[in-house]
Simulated assay, not measured.
Amino acid sequence: MTLTEHALTGSVLTTGADHRMLVGLPWYRSMPYSSIVRLSLTVDGVPAEDLQLEASDEWADLPSLATMTDRSWFLQDRRPLRWRPAGPLGARVEIVLRVGLHLPNLVGPTGDGVQVLQEVRGEVPVRAAA
């Protein structure tokens, strides 16, 4: 398994008033939520709108994650994403998850912080919410 593959392992997209899916952190170590500088998802090529991550038992959009300096996303944790539905889906969908991370304690050659963009692609099943 690669560095990022585990992020979608076992994921199922659940449809309903909003769509949801559990994802893992596509990195090799735990990170503070505030280190997430980009978060995007496409479903069959359609960008997810109003994307939020459940972080420490509250829903957070990208600007809110920046304030969560004292809480972390641990590698073993699968966190729910939710977003507004954009149309009907088939039985399986192609997912592209992109997570940009600011790496704490690392400084680039110009003195700026170091950021990485992790992209994970996979096909996941779709099911209706119970």
Rank of each mutant, 00 (worst) to 15 (best):
R78L: 07
G45Q: 12
R71V: 14
M1F: 12
L106C: 09
V46D: 10
S34W: 09
V12T: 08
V37Q: 15
L8S: 01
I95G: 00
A66T: 07
H19N: 13
E119L: 05
S30P: 11
D112Y: 14
E54P: 08
V116G: 07
V124F: 07
Y28S: 13
V23K: 02
A48S: 05
R79L: 15
S56P: 04
D61N: 14
A130T: 13
V23C: 04
A55T: 01
G122S: 04
E94P: 06
E119Y: 02
G113A: 08
Y28I: 12
T4H: 09
D112E: 15
A66K: 09
G122D: 03
T67V: 11
V120G: 00
R79F: 08
T2Q: 14
S35E: 12
T4K: 11
W27L: 11
S64E: 15
R92N: 14
Q76G: 05
V120E: 00
T15K: 06
D77N: 11
L3D: 15
A7C: 06
L103R: 03
E49A: 12
S11D: 02
V99G: 02
V120C: 01
T14Q: 06
W27H: 12
R29S: 14
Q52I: 05
G16P: 04
P47K: 06
S11R: 00
W83L: 02
E49Y: 03
Q76C: 07
H19G: 11
A66E: 07
E5R: 05
L51M: 04
M21P: 01
Y28C: 08
V37T: 14
P32M: 13
L51Y: 00
A60D: 12
L3T: 13
H102Y: 13
Y28G: 11
L117Q: 10
Y28M: 10
L81D: 01
E119H: 02
D44N: 08
M21G: 01
P63S: 08
G87H: 04
T110H: 08
G87I: 03
V116H: 04
A7Q: 03
T4C: 15
D44F: 03
A7K: 01
D61K: 09
D57M: 12
W83S: 01
W59Y: 12
L3K: 08
S56T: 07
G111A: 02
D57K: 10
E123V: 15
R29Q: 14
V46Q: 14
L65A: 00
L117I: 10
A129H: 05
G108Q: 10
Q118T: 13
E119W: 03
L8T: 01
E49C: 10
M1G: 15
A55N: 00
E58I: 11
G45Y: 05
S64Q: 15
